[in-house]
Nucleic acid binder design. Sequence first.
DNA 1: AATGAATGAGTGTTCATTCAT
DNA 2: CATGAATGAACACTCATTCAT
Lengths: 210, 210, 210, 210
Amino acid sequence: MGTTNFRQRIDEERKTRTRARLLDAARRVFTAAGYHSPKVSDIVDAAGVGQGTFYRHFSDKRELFDALVDALLVDLGAGFSEAFATLPETVEEYRDASLRSVRAAAGVLMEHRAEALLFLKEGPTIDAVLEARVAEVMDGFAFLAQGFLDHAIQAGFARPCDSAVVSQCLVGIALRHLERGLPEGDDLDHTVREIVDFAFLGFGPGTQER
Amino acid sequence: MGTTNFRQRIDEERKTRTRARLLDAARRVFTAAGYHSPKVSDIVDAAGVGQGTFYRHFSDKRELFDALVDALLVDLGAGFSEAFATLPETVEEYRDASLRSVRAAAGVLMEHRAEALLFLKEGPTIDAVLEARVAEVMDGFAFLAQGFLDHAIQAGFARPCDSAVVSQCLVGIALRHLERGLPEGDDLDHTVREIVDFAFLGFGPGTQER
Amino acid sequence: MGTTNFRQRIDEERKTRTRARLLDAARRVFTAAGYHSPKVSDIVDAAGVGQGTFYRHFSDKRELFDALVDALLVDLGAGFSEAFATLPETVEEYRDASLRSVRAAAGVLMEHRAEALLFLKEGPTIDAVLEARVAEVMDGFAFLAQGFLDHAIQAGFARPCDSAVVSQCLVGIALRHLERGLPEGDDLDHTVREIVDFAFLGFGPGTQER
Amino acid sequence: MGTTNFRQRIDEERKTRTRARLLDAARRVFTAAGYHSPKVSDIVDAAGVGQGTFYRHFSDKRELFDALVDALLVDLGAGFSEAFATLPETVEEYRDASLRSVRAAAGVLMEHRAEALLFLKEGPTIDAVLEARVAEVMDGFAFLAQGFLDHAIQAGFARPCDSAVVSQCLVGIALRHLERGLPEGDDLDHTVREIVDFAFLGFGPGTQER
DNA sequence: AATGAATGAGTGTTCATTCAT
DNA sequence: CATGAATGAACACTCATTCAT
């Protein structure tokens, strides 16, 4: 009533921008200092908005964290879909394809490393719901890995093994390197190749492999 | 005066007992609900002691947590030393010895699983000091693993590889299974064997192995 | 410019309408939930206007309440003047006239019951000024009643008594029934008659009355 | 455990004393400034205790108010039971007995006037529960009055009338005088006599009438 | 040594009010 | 004039810590 469409658009945009500033600030603050110590006031200070503004957008620190997580999962999901888009069809291309996929996935993860770590390490310490959500995401990855593995075993690309156990090993390897961080440039190639080699060959002496 | 001495002993014992009750209660409370949410009052309630009593023993929730960590690391250290006491000397016994060691180590870890997870997952979210301590412990494990690996490569028990990368993979595998928990009984044997097999052989098709 | 004049009229009308919407909404909100709990935002929501609009019309929740009170007192004043317009001149018509007046006054009050109660019960809890205003209005009624009574005593229509005390009794009776609410229809007649009888005769046994 | 009975007694007493200080302070603050404006901090300041202490004893301002009301109702109940302990048995003593009872009741009420007004006038503005409680108390008084009246009508002490309506009139009279306050000393006697006379006789011209 | 009542600094949250559009 | 996003002062409440007993 009396409100012009123009006014509505302007207001909406302003609101969105403010929300984005809060999310950005929270991302910076949380990745630097974790979830627990920062106070709401630290976040609004970093965002350069008033204290009350925070509560117009989020009902509490927890909800803001959730919003951050949602955004992260969307980004990761997209990145991963792309990384694992093409499945190898012959033994020969299997290792190469894997290498490419892992390198791509590593790139995506490293790009979002800070937030991913935030989610993985702080999430479970926040509350049971978030703990479950993290577990769910991890189980999702394990499930995917197990699917690939089962398919590979079936196709003779992989040694018969308990894919449930092995896929968890793969998840563990990924997590550990996410946590430690991966090198950049050529070193990244080297590291990824070592990881993939380990996954394919183990560290055992092999027969006379390669 | 004789009585004084007696009185001193009594008091000292009482103090020790009270401290133990607090530590026990804290272990229960923290493993159930994490480090952050429980208040000091939750711990003293669980211990059945007065609020003020807490501060006669610890200056802080943080200090109490440290005490818990110290005890844990002592226990784990002892268990691990024992698990990895004997080093294999020939290729033949290498995998068997590894299997035995891993199974033993898994037993120790599972026994202290709740506290270990507490340390690993809550620790880094508490403060920078504790975060560093956790990292240090993990690096210690990785360093040990790398030592074994280097020795094995040297001795021809293991495929030449970047032991720095591979040892982190091994740590990741261990952590992931610590986090998920291991089954009990025969299933434990199966799982451990699968893990060790994966570490030795990877999941690749092998040549015509075994 | 002619347009300007037109524009002015339009704006003025809109302003009046908006103010009326706010007053109406406030009446509804306040009579439903009292003065204290409703927030300014509850009122603007009920009025269907923007938050800022409120402050173009009233500087305060308090000022809005005052405006409501002003309107009420005007309405009540008019109603009462009419109800007590004709004074009885002989003993015979005294009770009948009273009955008619009381019934008329009761009608006016019941019509504005919700707002009157709002004023009477919430007013004194708002601030000293409003408390004084309520007291003043009540004293005004008492003063009127005392005037009637003195006149009646003079004229022999009423028993000599301390009219100051008795008029307060009458006010009390009126307030109590305002608060409780009066029945509708024939029951109203009955109740008013009982009240008037009580005021004239008390509840004592009388001589052989009626 | 370790706690001596003596220690328990001392602590308990201290706690009771602190609670009493808070109740006293609240009574003073509320009767002076009403329920709504005073902040919790005003009360703790008046009581001379720390802010946190308040919350050891009451969960909020509302609960403290309830405690005050409880105490008041106990006091009033006792005073009134006594005031109306003896029922008149003959017409002759009826008015005298009433006079005595009303004077006694007036004394009790005036003694607790400030708190009673607090309860009556602020109570209904606090929340629906308290509003209901006030209504309940008032209805209780009306019910008692109606009982007396019915009994008196039966016994021929009182004129047949609609006791439901008349008892509400009596309650209104009492409330109005509670609100206005009664004079002290001889004037009290005069006022009470005028009120009782009005209740028995009304203000009508009396016996040789009509 | 143990206790638990008292404390108050610190923090989350609300809501009247402002102001750019 | 009307709007509603933004604001921050004000306040309620929590909880680690102290201290009298």
